[in-house]
């Protein structure tokens, strides 16, 4: 009996240890290592800053504008940037790099996107901005005016989505609360 119980006690103690060990290792793997494996970390080709004085003075729509046909231009094309940066304007090494590597070679910058949506999604910027009460950009985007350098772009290796890509439930939720149409074809194409 005694032997038995002592075996039991010993096994309970060390068993608990094994259990904890397994739990901790799995937790560390699941919480810390797995995300590192899942997401690739990429840097923007140019460390563009929205917070720089000259940029911060601009309205968002100066560079991220609507075209006449109602479509949204999204990330600016080289054309928009060259309006100011035809030649190097200041001391910033990133600007110099930008002018030398892209402007002078007339090559589009391969910017990485934080809010990339798959091709079956139709997100209408007009529906959220060209309305009576426009949503602030920061409802969905980072407050970029505070960022000195762009954060690394963390892309999910499995899905191709960015770490912060908005999922459908967020859209649906807001639509439901605001009484907006939640039919599939409002956002899917």
């Amino acid at each position: 009996m005694e032997k038995k119980s002592s075996t039991k006690g010993q096994s309970a103690g060390s068993g608990f240890l094994f259990f904890i060990a397994g739990f901790v290792i799995a937790s560390v793997f699941g919480w810390v290592i797995f995300p590192k494996i899942l997401y690739s970390v990429n840097q923007q080709p140019i460390k563009f800053s929205h917070a720089l004085e000259d940029h911060a003075e601009l309205e968002c729509e100066n560079c991220h504008f609507f075209r006449d046909d109602g479509t949204y231009s999204g990330i600016p094309k080289l054309e928009t940037c060259t309006e100011c940066h035809e030649e190097v304007q200041g001391e910033n090494p990133e600007e110099k790099k930008f002018v030398e590597q892209y402007v002078q070679k007339n090559k589009e910058v391969p910017w990485l996107r934080y809010q990339w949506q798959p091709d079956n999604v139709y997100f209408s910027h007009a529906a959220h901005l060209k309305v009576e009460k426009p949503l602030p950009c920061t409802t969905c985007h980072r407050d970029v005016k505070k960022e000195k350098i762009p954060p690394p772009v963390r892309i999910n290796r499995l899905t191709g989505y960015h770490y912060s890509t908005m999922k459908m439930y967020v859209c649906e939720d807001c639509h439901a609360h605001k009484g907006a149409n939640n039919a599939c074809n409002v956002c899917h194409k």
């Binding site: 094994f18 259990f19 904890i20 397994g22 290792i25 799995a26 937790s27 699941g30 797995f34």
Partner: peptide, 20 residues
């Protein structure tokens, strides 16, 4: 065997409680 099973149980528990 028992320790192994206990370790596995812990690992399963830890995994289930992690986002993985």
């Amino acid at each position: 065997r028992r320790a192994f099973l206990q370790f596995t149980a812990g690992a399963i528990g830890g995994t289930l409680l992690s986002p993985l």
